[in-house]
Design a protein around this nucleic acid. Structure first.
Length: 327
DNA sequence: CCGACCCCTGCATTCCTTTA
DNA sequence: TAAAGGAATGCAGGGGTCGG
């Protein structure tokens, strides 16, 4: 009877032992550039993704990290974030030390110089230039300018002139490209990697079928490849191009991001993950991607409104669909 | 110039999270 | 558990752009 007091139950012992083998990793969250310590069991096998708890408060998140909460068994669904894996440590304390060291190192040698092209930019609050803007230079104070020699100043002015002329040149080229080669409503035949992609989705049945299909990694890759080939320069364009290909306005108005009211939740779809991945290949981060999807879904009704006024129940056939649905 | 289309903004409402 | 505050959403109306 008192065996239980002698030693804890087997499953608890196993759990404790398993927890001891979970290490801690230091990672950079790609969407926010934040350097974080997380339990290794939160990482995906390829160490390119990391689960993140749905808690709002920092304390709870820290608690989850320290207690190595299992991402699959803690009630609410956990977010899956894109990360850059930086290192793994045996204990939380060692990971924190590693985190500190990396942070120090990053301060001396910005990540951009260590990992060119990998570090993504923080996009919150930067709307216009978003993804392609230049990395911020160190702050130039009046004091630092006054310390410069005349040669330095001449050189800087020359550089600024070069940059200006280059920007003008690029602007002219961009204008020409946009004029000659506006993003086509219908993807060219070369953009269609597979005849299996039955897009755009028109009904919930289509959505359910696609959700099933997307469980297959190969199919998922095909979708990502196709959707990322649709073009677009700004996050808005990228998402618009993708969403136009993915679902009709009729279906879009039956979704909202969270599934409020009597609408379905778009954020819960595997398809949304695929869209995120596709957008990421075009340098649209998670935040921008979600914002633009939300907007696209909310605009769907107003896009439809004028047409409905013109003729109730009459749907203008989607040109895109006919080219793809015939498969 | 006009109409169609699309996007944005402001406001009201609903929902969720936090706090006491 | 209820109240308060913030976030998300829906809707209507207005403005910009483009083609006829």
């Amino acid at each position: 009877m008192n065996q239980q007091t002698a030693s804890p139950p087997l499953d608890q012992r196993l759990k404790t032992t398993a927890l001891q083998y979970i290490m801690y990793a230091v990672v950079t969250l790609q969407d926010s550039d934040e350097l974080m310590v997380v339990p290794s069991n939160w990482l995906s096998q390829d160490k390119r993704h990391c689960y993140w708890p749905p808690f709002k408060s920092t304390e709870k998140c820290m608690e989850a990290v320290e207690n190595k909460l299992n991402p699959e068994t803690e009630g609410k669904p956990w977010e899956k974030l894109n990360i850059i894996f930086l290192g793994e440590y045996g204990t939380f304390e060692k990971a924190k030390e590693g985190h500190k060291e990396i942070k120090e190192h990053e301060r001396s040698y910005p990540l951009d110089t260590v990992l060119p092209g990998i570090k993504r930019q923080r996009l919150e609050g930067s709307q216009g230039m978003s993804n392609n803007q230049l990395h911020p230079l160190p702050p130039v104070t009046p004091a630092s300018i006054s310390r410069m020699s005349a040669d330095d100043k001449v050189e800087i002015i020359q550089m600024l002139r070069d940059i200006k002329s280059k920007v003008q040149e690029n602007s002219t080229m961009l204008k020409k490209i946009l004029k000659d080669n506006t993003v086509p409503e219908v993807p060219s035949s070369t953009c269609v990697p597979s005849k299996n992609l039955k897009l755009p989705l028109r009904t919930f049945e289509d959505v359910a079928r696609t959700e099933m299909e997307l469980k297959n990694a190969t199919t998922r890759k095909k979708y990502v490849k196709y959707l990322s080939s649709l073009g677009g320069h700004m996050p808005k364009d990228v998402i618009k191009n993708i969403m136009q290909q993915v679902l009709t306005d009729d279906l879009a108005i039956q979704f909202n991001w969270q599934g409020r009211g009597d609408k379905k939740a778009f954020s819960h779809l595997v398809l949304t993950d695929v869209i995120r991945d596709s957008a990421l290949t075009r340098n649209v981060n998670r935040g921008d991607c979600e914002t633009e999807i939300k907007k696209y879904l909310s605009y769907a009704a107003s896009r439809k409104r004028p047409r409905e006024q013109g003729g109730p129940g009459h749907e203008i056939p989607n040109v895109i669909s006919t080219s793809l649905m015939g498969n």
